[in-house]
């Protein structure tokens, strides 16, 4: 579904991603771990082209996203993104947040969008917040709405950038549970997270990055229990403390 080859990203002279290569198949749930500043967010942002890669190729459903002829917005409809800071539209209610994109893009009629949004809000226990503005929600509620907002687009893949890092500890679980539910429905996803238990729980593959490079890729069991790289061993010991 997604093939990343020789991906490099520089900010001015600063090399933030140095030759990233990996593949994502349908149904994969890839977790990306690594110390702060190693380029995890930049990597995710390159995949839906919120950042423009400096070199390399990103093949998504057989299209190279770096081709000049690619219509970015059409691609982005199919790649959902969930941000650390939620980024709900502050001027819109919960319902309006969810239906804005699918209706304005003409993907479904407004009444169908409302129906679908209400169904999702009911399913995830947010129906009573329908007409609230983001500032009236808790962090956990905001992030769940943000996830529903990407779900209604029917994406082929969702990118999560530290979806629970900005949350108070007691709200982490409600968001993780929601992501787990989506995972169980076989959604393809790439998740950047520092919550190791959560990763063990949902990931099919783990990528460990340092300094803009992938140091080790493997299944969760290998990465967490039989890590090869010394830096990975250290990193896992640190996060277990």
């Amino acid at each position: 579904m997604l093939i990343i080859k020789g991906l490099k990203k520089k900010f001015n002279k600063n090399s933030v991603l140095k030759n990233i290569n990996f593949e994502v198949n349908k149904g994969d749930r890839i977790a990306i771990i690594g110390p702060s500043g190693c380029g995890k967010s930049t990597l995710l942002r390159c995949i839906n082209l919120l950042e423009k890669p400096s070199e390399g190729s990103i093949i998504f459903n057989n299209t190279n996203l770096l081709d000049k002829s690619v219509e970015l917005n059409v691609i982005r409809e199919k790649i959902g993104m969930v941000f650390q800071q939620f980024n709900l539209f502050n001027n819109l209610t919960v319902l309006e947040n969810i239906i804005l994109a699918p209706t304005k893009l003409g993907l479904i009629s407004k009444s169908d969008a409302v129906k679908e949004a209400k169904k999702l809000l009911k399913q995830f226990d947010l129906y009573d917040k329908l007409n609230n503005y983001p500032r009236e929600l808790s962090g956990g509620q905001k992030q769940r709405v943000a996830i529903i907002r990407t779900l209604i687009m029917n994406p082929d893949m969702i990118l999560f950038d530290e979806p629970t890092s900005a949350l108070d500890p007691e709200m982490v679980l409600e968001v993780e549970d929601l992501i787990k539910t989506i995972a169980d429905e076989n959604m393809t996803m790439i998740v950047v997270s520092h919550e190791m238990n959560f990763i063990k729980n949902i990931a099919t593959k783990v990528i460990f990055m340092i300094d803009g490079e992938i140091v080790e890729i493997g299944d969760p069991d290998t990465i967490f229990n039989k890590p090869k790289d010394e830096r990975l061993k250290k990193f896992i010991n640190l996060t277990n403390k």
Partner: peptide
């Protein structure tokens, strides 16, 4: 207006004009 507002709009497939009109300018 926080850049995240625009980025969220883009990430959903909205175009510059739509992001401006429905999200950024109203704020």
């Amino acid at each position: 207006i926080d850049k995240g507002q625009m980025e969220a709009g883009y990430s959903l497939g909205l175009k510059y004009g739509q992001v401006m009109r429905f999200i950024v300018l109203p704020q």
